[in-house]
Simulated assay, not measured.
Amino acid sequence: MKILSIHQESQGVYGPPRITAELHDRGEVITEKTVAKIMRSLGVSGISPRTFKVRTTVIDPFASFPDDLVQCQFDQGRLDAVWTSDIAYLTCGEGDMYLCAIKDEHSKKVLGWSVADHMRTELVLGALEMAVAERGGNAAGTIMHSDRGSQYSPASGGPPR
């Protein structure tokens, strides 16, 4: 049976979507629902791509954090009043990566970003340097708001608040 053969060729990884695509590539006409039904009847299934969630917010227990200066009012009615930042985990073909982005909350424009294979402070600093350069080197008076991840903590060498 072709479905079982493709499943075995993938070392048990492929589920109905990939097996259906492979069958289509081989000239077969079949729906994903039919493939799923046949796989259930054979007692085989694919492996989910990710069964874990990566924690990108790691709070430094020794860091002190300033008061929330914006009180959830991120759009202050003008450019460069409040910038926000976050780190996202990316699964890539070459390996896992992290993306840090900095956004102006009035214009909603991403001003700076940085990608690395780590979540150290340098990731945030790279994005911050790009954002400041985007604004002509002047970010005086801008509030940088982020979660309480250790990369953003002044105590761990992160950007000042």
Rank of each mutant, 00 (worst) to 15 (best):
residue 15 G to E: 02
residue 16 P to D: 02
residue 18 R to P: 00
residue 19 I to P: 00
residue 21 A to C: 05
residue 23 L to T: 03
residue 25 D to N: 14
residue 26 R to H: 08
residue 27 G to T: 11
residue 29 V to M: 08
residue 30 I to C: 02
residue 30 I to P: 00
residue 30 I to F: 01
residue 33 K to D: 02
residue 37 K to Q: 10
residue 39 M to W: 01
residue 40 R to Y: 01
residue 43 G to T: 10
residue 44 V to F: 00
residue 46 G to V: 01
residue 46 G to W: 00
residue 47 I to Y: 10
residue 49 P to G: 15
residue 49 P to L: 14
residue 50 R to F: 13
residue 53 K to A: 15
residue 56 T to P: 03
residue 58 V to P: 07
residue 59 I to M: 11
residue 59 I to H: 07
residue 62 F to E: 15
residue 62 F to D: 15
residue 67 D to M: 08
residue 67 D to Q: 13
residue 69 L to W: 08
residue 70 V to H: 02
residue 73 Q to D: 14
residue 73 Q to K: 13
residue 74 F to L: 09
residue 77 G to H: 08
residue 79 L to C: 11
residue 81 A to L: 09
residue 82 V to I: 10
residue 83 W to L: 03
residue 86 D to V: 11
residue 87 I to K: 00
residue 87 I to M: 03
residue 89 Y to C: 06
residue 91 T to C: 11
residue 92 C to I: 08
residue 92 C to R: 05
residue 99 L to C: 06
residue 100 C to Q: 03
residue 102 I to D: 01
residue 110 V to W: 05
residue 113 W to L: 12
residue 114 S to T: 05
residue 117 D to Y: 04
residue 118 H to Q: 10
residue 122 E to A: 15
residue 126 G to P: 01
residue 126 G to M: 04
residue 126 G to Y: 03
residue 131 A to S: 09
residue 131 A to L: 07
residue 135 R to E: 01
residue 136 G to Q: 09
residue 138 N to F: 08
residue 139 A to Q: 03
residue 139 A to K: 03
residue 142 T to I: 10
residue 144 M to G: 02
residue 145 H to C: 07
residue 149 G to T: 06
residue 150 S to I: 12
residue 152 Y to K: 05
